[in-house]
């Protein structure tokens, strides 16, 4: 069997549950850590970014309206499918990142989906409240998804970092446009295949590959994006992206400022809280 010619995969974008090429027709060569050719990835354009935002917006009512129990099962399903393709991800992460510990990274990425799957139906208990107001009213506060989140995935950690950025966004009922690591985009697209065949509805996660510095400003200024996660943003454009985000008062997460965090540590609720609004509801009490 060793003389068999393998079937190489064309890596494309993941938008609205489909795998289109970039409308621009552009691709860029992706290499392994030693400079060997791996594949041509789609180099997404401004229009691809806008299509991705439109898909994410369209998916938002359904996904945010799903029950927390349902979302938890869908996220758990992602972990199940990832587990089944563990070997493939180990190979791909090893090639992308040139690391020996790819196996532990993939394990951690699978476990992270499980961790966030368990959060979907607990976050409202932990972050919500019944408010003891000084009057005859029942007042309660619930966390709600902020909407469409544009995330710039970390540049180094191509799978675990990506999952750590995307999972909390969708666990809380938001929908997501994520720009993968620029130079290590392949695990992101393979993850899209997992998402597409799991029960995550099309448009809930949209994956763009290409130049972070080219795509990020369009997402930062897009009026239908509610929040911007700067985790993988190059230092040189972080301030510019924050300025663009101010145009529609976006929530900006400045994670990743001064370098990538250690993704193997247990995350905590920070990333959940960053994409949640608090809604307070009042009603009088009386007979």
């Amino acid at each position: 069997m060793s003389d068999r010619v393998s079937v190489a995969k064309t890596y494309k974008l993941y938008i609205g549950g489909a795998f289109p090429r970039s409308e621009s027709g552009r691709v860029y060569a992706v290499t392994d850590s030693r400079g060997g050719f791996l594949a041509n990835a789609a180099q997404a354009s401004r229009k691809d970014a806008r299509d991705a935002v439109a898909a994410a917006r369209k998916a938002f009512p359904g996904w945010s309206g799903a029950t927390a129990y349902n979302r938890g099962q869908v996220l758990y399903r992602v972990a199940e499918l990832l587990e089944g393709r563990r070997e493939q991800f180990v190979r791909e992460v090893a090639a992308s990142e040139g690391v020996k510990h790819a196996e532990s990274v993939v394990n951690a990425a699978i476990d992270r989906w499980v961790w966030y799957a368990g959060w979907t139906d607990k976050v409202a208990t932990v972050l919500g409240a019944s408010n003891p107001v000084a009057g005859p009213y029942f007042s309660f506060s619930v966390p709600e998804p902020t909407g469409v989140v544009a995330a710039l995935a970390p540049q180094s950690s191509s799978l675990l970092g990506l999952v750590s950025v995307v999972a909390p966004v969708i666990a809380t009922g938001n929908t997501c446009v994520v720009v993968s690591s620029q130079n290590r985009p392949l695990p992101a697209i393979t993850l899209s295949e997992v998402l597409a065949t799991s029960d995550v509805p099309g448009g809930v996660v949209n994956v763009l590959t290409g130049r972070t510095g080219e795509l990020a400003p369009w997402l930062a200024s897009h009026a239908d994006v509610n929040a911007l996660d700067l985790t993988g943003a190059p230092e040189s454009i972080r301030a510019e992206l924050e300025r663009a985000a101010a145009g529609t008062v976006k929530r900006v997460s400045r994670a990743g400022r001064g370098g990538e965090p250690d993704w193997t540590r247990e995350p905590g609720v920070d990333r959940l809280r960053a994409v949640l609004e608090t809604k307070t509801v009042w009603h009088p009490m009386g007979v």
């Binding site: 409240a129 408010n131 003891p132 107001v133 000084a134 009057g135 009213y137 007042s139 506060s141 902020t146 909407g147 509610n226 529609t248 008062v249 609004e277 608090t278 809604k279 307070t280 509801v281 009042w282 009603h283 009088p284």
Partner: peptide, 21 residues
């Protein structure tokens, strides 16, 4: 961020107040 049902303009320090969008 705040929804008043069968009432309006109620404020209390125990009840979070603030906006969306």
């Amino acid at each position: 961020g705040v929804v008043w049902a069968n009432t309006f303009n109620r404020f209390d320090p125990t009840a979070p107040f603030g906006g969306y969008q």
